[in-house]
Design a binder for these strands. Structure first.
Length: 359
DNA sequence: CCTCAAACCTGGAAGC
DNA sequence: TGCTTCCAGGTTTGAG
């Protein structure tokens, strides 16, 4: 499943391929991808609204914090007369959840000539000539379909392939047409449109990102402050690592890997661990991230595929996660698994002592 | 403050 | 073989 390094790999791929591209069409194949996380009945755009808000906008950049990706959109090229509201910049926000993938595909058909800021291929009503398609496959009904004559939900689903939940049609500045598909088997991933606001640290972020802390790869991440916070807490060090309001981007896999690397038992309370050791833990988190990034992202269950559809390779580098009963690669002791809430923690009982030794 | 569990999903694995 | 149940994961929310 995608964690921070995988998301960063996706970000790099997207950034190099679609920065500056204009959205010319949107297919929402399964509206559940548009729901908000958490709140069951939280308001969200329906597929048609989502498509309408996206079409005609230019993707200005691809940013990341933790496991969140967001793409700030340039002023509406369909309504250039509208007064720009710099404080109200909207971004397309994506979270891959457990099984999400963002896949790019070059379209055979290319547009003629470069895309200008005032594309003639859009009409004055703001509708893209390429069409707005939004379907709810669960009900088999086309919500809005300008090509209803030659397309049906069944056709759309067949064209989409398995687990494609949404698709953006993009045209780059060089005129090349590209499809960006959001594929997600388990539908834990999310797509949303959110306005950007200052996060209090001088960075413009979407609302859903404003509530989480910086990730360890950001320059603003403050090791001393985070360690101090951990030293004050009675919570387990693993719970602290997974607390997105303290550190973002660390998931279950990399938490176990980092703890193994720093030789810390997962259930020890933060306040029971020496300041020096906690600094070592943060360093270990970065090392594990860096190692994963070097290898181009990880995949141990083949659900994760990078932006071009290639699988990552990091699975072989896991030292603790998923290795119950197999020898620790440092000391040979068998890796154990313990329940951590409703999930698992893997650790080496020899390298990661429950109580710190004299050191 | 902290922990746990539920809800959201699917499909593979395990149990019968 | 075929059915049912369980489980995994990230995130948010709410109860205790």
């Amino acid at each position: 499943m995608p964690e921070l390094p995988e998301v960063e790999i996706v970000r790099r791929g997207l950034s190099s391929h679609i920065t500056g591209a204009v959205c010319t069409g949107v297919d929402v194949i399964d509206e559940r991808i548009l729901r908000r996380h958490g709140a069951p009945a939280a308001p969200h755009l329906d597929g048609a609204q989502f498509a309408r808000s996206l079409i005609g906008h230019r993707i200005n950049a691809v940013n990341r914090r933790g496991k969140f990706l967001w793409m700030p959109l340039a002023d509406d090229v369909l309504a250039p007369r509208r007064i720009p509201q710099p404080q109200q910049t909207v971004a397309l926000v994506a979270h891959l959840g457990m099984s999400g993938q963002l896949l790019l595909r070059d379209c055979a058909a290319q547009m003629h000539g470069p895309v200008s800021p005032h594309m003639s291929s859009f009409d004055s009503q703001g509708d893209a000539v390429l069409g707005v398609q939004s379907r709810d496959v669960q009900h088999g009904n086309a919500i809005s379909d300008e090509f209803s004559a030659d397309s049906s939900s069944r056709v759309a689903l067949a064209l989409a392939g398995p687990h494609v939940r949404a698709r953006l049609h993009l045209v780059r500045a060089d005129g090349r047409a590209i499809e960006l598909s959001f594929v997600d088997q388990r539908i834990f991933g999310r797509l949303s449109l959110e306005t950007l606001a200052d996060d209090g640290r001088g960075r413009l972020v979407p609302g859903s990102v404003a509530v989480i802390a910086p990730d360890p790869l950001e320059p603003v991440f403050d090791d001393d402050a985070v360690v101090a916070c951990m030293r004050r807490s009675r919570a387990s060090v693993k719970a602290l690592l997974l607390n997105q309001r303290l550190i973002s981007g660390v998931g279950n896999i990399y938490a176990d890997e980092s703890l193994w690397r720093a030789r810390i038992y997962w259930a020890r309370a933060g306040r029971s661990i020496a300041t020096r050791t906690l600094h070592r833990l943060l360093a270990a988190v970065r090392e594990v991230f860096a190692q994963s990034l070097d290898q181009g992202g990880t995949s141990f269950d083949s659900l994760y595929v990078n932006v071009n559809g290639e699988s990552g390779y990091f699975s072989r580098s896991l030292n603790a996660y998923g290795r119950e009963g197999r020898p620790c690669l440092r000391c040979g002791t068998l890796i154990r698994r313990e329940r951590f809430g409703s999930r698992s923690s893997y650790y080496c009982p020899r390298c990661q002592r429950k109580y710190s030794l004299s050191s």
